[in-house]
Simulated assay, not measured.
Amino acid sequence: MAEQKHTAGAFDVRTFIAALIGLFGVILVLAGLFGPDRTADSVTDGSAVNLWVGVGLLLVAGLLQGWAMLRPTVVDEPPASAQGSGSEPGV
């Protein structure tokens, strides 16, 4: 009997990491757009650091999710006899 194969799908670790990076990116973009006045910030010389880092994080999240979709992780299914048909000794 041939082994059945399927992809990890939503359970791929790259999907979780891309979602978290994307969430942080959205938060930083919103903070960059609607945050406090940037002209008073002497450390960054008035540049929109939150906005640019947020955009960068969104790009990285998109690339990571694209990678997960283009090259999915293939999971091998165990044979049907090893999946616990209820006839295991000692159960």
Rank of each mutant, 00 (worst) to 15 (best):
M1Q: 11
E3N: 13
E3G: 06
Q4Y: 15
K5I: 04
H6E: 15
T7S: 03
A8Q: 12
G9C: 09
G9M: 06
G9V: 01
F11N: 14
D12H: 01
D12Y: 02
D12R: 07
V13Y: 09
R14M: 07
T15G: 06
F16P: 00
F16S: 14
A18E: 03
A18Y: 02
A19L: 02
L20Q: 14
G22I: 00
V26S: 14
V26M: 15
V29A: 12
V29S: 10
L30W: 06
L30P: 02
L33Y: 11
F34L: 09
G35W: 14
G35K: 07
P36I: 07
P36C: 04
D37R: 05
R38K: 15
R38H: 13
R38V: 13
T39I: 08
A40N: 12
V43I: 08
V43Y: 15
T44F: 15
D45N: 13
G46A: 05
S47Y: 12
S47K: 05
V49Q: 10
V49C: 07
V53T: 14
V55M: 11
G56R: 05
L57Q: 03
V60P: 01
V60N: 00
G62L: 01
L64C: 00
G66S: 04
A68H: 00
M69W: 10
R71Y: 05
P72I: 07
V75Y: 00
D76F: 05
E77S: 07
P78W: 08
P78C: 04
P79E: 09
A80R: 12
S81G: 05
S81N: 09
Q83E: 03
G84M: 01
G86L: 02
S87C: 12
S87T: 14
S87Y: 15
E88Y: 02
E88G: 07
E88T: 10
P89R: 10
G90C: 02
